[in-house]
């Protein structure tokens, strides 16, 4: 009898969690495309120095506002043309990928770390501390994110670092609320009680027992957080409150594009397309991740 049970188990070993995840994730075609694009962008960012045909700061004074290669007057030296001071747009876009992804990584890391700490402590400890933290988050949420980010940059002064800090503060409430909500849902479950009975201290309870079980929604939010961070950083760059020229940041590249709109559409089009595609890729992947990680969606 026991042999047959063993045989049965051998016949169908449970799939590795990662493999199971991939099965659900890859059902969503859009999510897979998004993921491939993200990998592509990461590769571009990492190997920007090797891949980019020119230095993003080099000004080719004899090739100002040159159109892309497929248009009259374009040359294969500058595939997507050049901007108003003769810098190669392709190279600037590739180096821009580096900046945008870096902004995403730093913003998500900062806000995720702070959000987890504030959320888990307020959910676990409760009391006046919880009210204080949650009210503070409500205030941040009461302001439109871009307006608050602008206000913070107005205090700190416009630069890419300050823009990153401002965006991290602005998106913080989402992580805090999400973590707190998960902690509230988990904290009365049996395994948590068991661990408390075993004598776990508050630190262990929060970060070793509870946190791993609250991670799924946070992973989804972090992925979607990349798109928000990239979009907001680009918006601040566009308004002149983020990365400063001549930094090849996608938003900053569009900052004075309005004046070339009549004669050089490529200066306007490509940086925005890069922002759109990257943000879209993260949103697609985030949606797929949510479906794959949410047990309710699994059939």
């Amino acid at each position: 009898m026991s042999d047959t049970i063993m045989e049965h188990l051998d016949a169908a070993p449970p799939p590795h969690p990662l493999k199971e995840f991939w099965v659900y994730f890859s059902e969503n075609k859009g999510a897979v495309i998004g993921l491939y694009f993200i990998v592509f962008a990461i590769l571009l960012a990492v190997f920007a120095d090797v891949i980019a045909p020119h230095n993003p700061f080099d000004q080719y004074r004899d090739a100002i506002l040159q159109p892309p290669v497929w248009m009259d007057g374009g040359s294969s030296k500058f595939f997507l043309g050049t901007d108003d001071v003769g810098r190669d747009i392709v190279s600037r876009l590739i180096h821009g990928a580096r900046l945008s992804l870096l902004v995403g990584v730093i913003v998500v890391t900062l806000s995720l770390a702070a959000g987890i700490i504030l959320g888990i402590t307020s959910g676990y400890l409760g009391g006046f501390y919880e009210i204080l933290v949650m009210r503070l988050m409500d205030i941040i949420l009461a302001l439109p994110s871009l307006l608050l980010a602008l206000a913070i940059v107005a205090i700190l002064g416009p630069s890419l670092q300050n823009a990153i800090l401002a965006i991290a503060i602005v998106v913080l409430p989402h992580y805090v609320r999400l973590t707190r909500a998960s902690v509230m849902a988990e904290k009365n479950k049996d395994y948590v009680t068991a661990s408390r009975v075993c004598g776990s201290g508050p630190f262990r309870m929060m970060f070793v027992v509870l946190l791993p079980n609250c991670m799924a929604p946070l992973i989804v939010q972090a992925t979607l957080g990349f798109s928000t961070a990239i979009l907001d950083a680009a918006a601040l760059g566009f308004l002149g409150m983020g990365a400063q020229p001549p930094t090849p940041e996608w938003g900053a590249m569009l900052a004075n594009a309005l004046q070339f709109i009549q004669r050089a559409w490529w200066v306007v089009t490509f940086p925005g397309l890069a922002i759109l595609l990257t943000v879209l890729a993260f949103n697609l992947a985030g949606d797929g991740l949510r479906d794959a990680l949410d047990p309710k969606m699994k059939r």
């Binding site: 859009g30 798109s227 979009l231 680009a234 918006a235 566009f238 308004l239 938003g251 569009l254 594009a257 309005l258 709109i261 009549q262 559409w265 306007v268 089009t269 940086p271 925005g272 397309l273 922002i275 759109l276 943000v279 879209l280 949103n283 697609l284 949606d287």
Partner: peptide, 22 residues
Amino acid sequence: SLTGYSMPIFWWGLLMILFFSV
């Protein structure tokens, strides 16, 4: 709608000007 949601609207505005106005 996912594309619209991911849209950098400052660029979207520039594109609209480029196409409809210019």
